[in-house]
């Protein structure tokens, strides 16, 4: 059986005395689109930072693509793509130059072809020759996703990918995620506030409340379990209001 795409065992983290993550156990299988939900400050970004090797957990172990995020950092970074919230990239470079740069760092053998192919795949070839400094938030986000997938990672981490996007941008992002998952088989780990988008695109959800994982299940089972709730927003409110 293949290794899970993401595996966290007893992961805790604290920046000061207060823990931000508490004893998280989480498994995400390959090919899933996982929506990580939680209020501001719940610890979602900290979890992503640990899984993308940017942060060493205070306790516990985390594995991505079967590799430990601390001991096998290089192996993990070879198989992940990452889009942080409010990504800017290099303003003095064009979109294509940015993509080629990140592709080279990831060891892609033909960075030019990879950059052109990725822009084409995302329907953003027209942005290639333009400087990033001239881009709107939506355009930056498209190039941000392009840099995250230019090396065709197995697991894609998206941290609040819809922040600052207009409704059209949100819809395009949703379509992109579905295509990446459906056509390329990428596992997607997405932190978000937009529950309506989670309901449409995610196969599994997890809810983080004050650093504790209070819920994790598939979207199908979630809607079955809460038959009286009209939307994911209602389900989420019920989960959060339950005592931890």
């Amino acid at each position: 059986m293949a290794d899970p795409a993401v595996e966290m065992r007893g992961v805790s983290h604290r920046y000061t005395s207060d823990p931000v993550l508490r004893d998280i156990d989480l498994t995400i299988e390959q090919g899933e689109v996982f929506g990580f939900l939680g209020h501001n400050g719940a610890g979602k970004t900290t979890a992503v930072n640990i899984l993308t090797t940017l942060l060493v957990p205070s306790a516990g172990t985390a594995r991505v693509c079967g590799y430990d995020v601390v001991a096998d950092r290089r192996k993990v970074t070879e198989c992940i793509g990452y889009l942080p919230s409010d990504v800017r990239l290099y303003d003095h470079m064009t979109a294509t130059e940015n993509l080629e740069f990140f592709a080279k760092l990831s060891g892609v053998s033909d960075p030019r072809k990879a950059a052109a192919g990725t822009l084409d795949y995302l329907g953003s070839s027209d942005l290639g020759p333009l400087r990033m400094s001239t881009f709107s938030t939506g355009m930056r986000q498209r190039i941000g996703i392009a840099q995250a997938i230019v090396h065709q990672p197995r697991v894609l981490f998206l941290d609040e990918p819809t922040s600052g996007l207009d409704p059209t941008g949100v819809r395009q992002l949703r379509e992109t995620i579905s295509r990446l998952n459906g056509e390329l088989g990428m596992t997607v780990f997405m932190n978000t506030h937009l529950l309506s988008e989670v309901a449409r695109v995610c196969s599994t959800i997890g809810v983080l409340n004050h650093g504790e994982l209070i819920y994790k299940d598939s979207m199908a089972k979630t809607t079955e379990r809460f038959p009286n709730e009209a939307s994911l927003e209602d389900i989420y409110e019920r989960m959060e209001s339950r005592p931890a």
Partner: peptide
């Protein structure tokens, strides 16, 4: 300013 350090560090660098 470009907040690119996390992007660089999430690569095999």
């Amino acid at each position: 300013a470009n907040r690119t350090l996390p992007l660089l560090r999430s690569r095999p660098v």
